[in-house]
Structure formats: C-alpha cells, structure tokens
Design a protein around this nucleic acid. Structure first.
Lengths: 104, 104
DNA sequence: GTTGGTAGTCATGTTTTTTTGACTAATTGA
DNA sequence: TCAATTAGTCAAAAAAACATGACTACCAAC
C-alpha cells in the first residue's frame, strides 16, 4: 500500500470510475428501474428474471457505496427498505440517456 | 437458441449495450487515448503500464466489433495498423465527457 | 542471416465476478 | 402460534475476465 494506482488511473481516465460504478450484470437494469421511482430488494428479484439474492444485494450495496442510490428504512406497514436515486444518481441520468441513444 | 435474451435485455435497458462495449479493464483507457488520434497495438502496450498483448488485442477486437474503432492497414514504412475512432465512436465522445465530469 | 520492430495467436493459469443453496432474523396477519 | 413476507448473509461452486509466457509471421536494416 504505497501509492494508490486507482487514483492515478482515474486521474488519467476519469470516465473509468463512473463506468465501473454502473458496470456489472445487474446494475444498469437496477439503475433504469430506479428511474421510475424507489426500488426494493424483493421487488428487484421479481423484476429481474435470472437474478438472485446475492447479486442483487451486492449491486445495491455497491451502488449505495458509490452514492448512486440512497437506502431508506420506510416506517410504514409493512416496514420496508427503499432504494432511491441520490442527487448524484439523478445527475447521472443524462449520461445514462445519452448511452440509451446508441441502440446497437 | 430460441429467442435472443440479449436483445430483450437491451430492449428493456438500452444503456446496457454501450456500457458493456466500453467496460473492462483497458477499454476506457484505450478509448481515451484514441480521442487524441489513431492508436496502435504496440503503442498501447507501452502507454498502458500493466497491460499485456492478449488483453489489448482482445479489447481492440471487441471495440472494432462494436464499431467503436476502425482498423486500418497503413501502407507506409514501416507498414503498420492503426485504430481510429469510428463515426459511432466519435458520437460517443459526448457521453464519455459526461462520465468524466463525475470525478468520484 | 541475424537482430529488431511490426502485430498478433495460443494454451494455460490466476483472479474476479456471478450463481447456487442453505441459513438468519425481524415483522405481520390469521 | 404458525405461515408468509420483509431483507438480507454465508460458504462454496461455476463462469467469465484477465494475465503469463511461448510462439508465429512479416518486413527492414545491418
């Protein structure tokens, strides 16, 4: 742990950080669903055919750590947890829309 | 090989395709270098410390297949190969710049 | 004809990512 | 109290991505 190359690499290629934060098998789809409103753990499992608890949990945790999603405990019945786009997440929407315009 | 889910998934999340085409350990950096002009195989190996032939070759091939880079044989001395941003690649620059604005 | 530069491929091994299935724990409704 | 729903965790296996080292092939200079 001398110098941190991650910072050096991101300095030489700033897009790399964001790309990584949105990359992975489930993150793009989770982001997209979050555009329409708060998402929930079990809801995502149902909405993402082929997904699984572990992968969705990991994606949510990493997107929360990357400050793309905000986790909230909703004090209602039934008590549950919501993931909402953060301010940064909302700022990323235009970039996301830009990517959507490239229909391969 | 019944229905192609890749298309279905990309239909439900169009950003996913582009994200995948730019994701990976070396593609973002290669894209960034290509912004400054044509890039070459051995040049990239030198410019990307820690990279290797196999990974760079794979990244170039996939970016060419994704129509982000165009491969050209340059009939000069020494005879060599150049990879240049395609029209689509150039269209992606604004999205890339957008990502760069998120300095994590 | 040997060295050095061009641009790779191939087989193998390592590392990272993703999946699977079992398990936990709190809350809610009947 | 029992069953379902909430939201996960954990260990292990499978799959995908990445790295290593050897090798190929062409061209030009010495």
């Amino acid at each position: 742990m001398t110098t941190n190359n991650l910072h050096q690499e991101e300095a030489s290629c700033p897009a790399e950080g964001i790309l990584k934060q949105l990359s992975g098998k489930w993150k793009p789809q989770i982001f997209r669903l979050a555009l329409d409103g708060p998402v929930r753990f079990n809801g995502l499992l149902r909405q993402l055919p082929g997904s699984n608890k572990q992968s969705v949990a990991t994606a949510l945790k990493e997107m929360e750590e990357a400050d793309i999603l905000v986790k909230t405990v909703v004090q209602e019945k039934p008590l549950h947890i919501e993931y909402t786009l953060s301010e940064k997440g909302r700022a990323m929407v235009s970039v996301f829309r830009g990517m959507e315009s490239f229909l391969t």
